[in-house]
């Protein structure tokens, strides 16, 4: 427990160190999640386009 607290404290630089790592986690997480979300929407739209074209050609 004490070792853990010492680790969290980062020799008194906790605020600086953890905010850097936290920011990296945030921006990298968004960089991955946003394209994945976009992909799901794109797939929906493209399916609709393909459906429409099928019904027109019939």
């Amino acid at each position: 427990m004490e070792a853990f607290l010492k680790f969290i404290d980062m020799g008194g630089y906790a605020g600086y160190v953890w905010s850097s790592y936290g920011l990296a986690l945030l921006v990298f997480g968004l960089s991955i999640i946003l394209p994945l979300k976009e992909k799901r929407q794109l797939e929906k739209r493209i399916r609709r386009i393909i459906q429409n074209e099928k019904s027109v050609s019939k």
Binding site: I32, L36, K39, E43, I46, I49
Partner: peptide, 28 residues
């Protein structure tokens, strides 16, 4: 990480640009 993000974005971009092409229709 860079490679992953670029590929994810590039695939989305490609899919949308080529939405009317045969290969996308086959894929779906």
């Amino acid at each position: 990480l860079y490679a992953i993000v670029v590929l994810l974005r590039a695939r989305n971009d490609l899919l949308w640009r080529e939405r009317r092409s045969q290969w996308v229709a086959t894929l779906f």
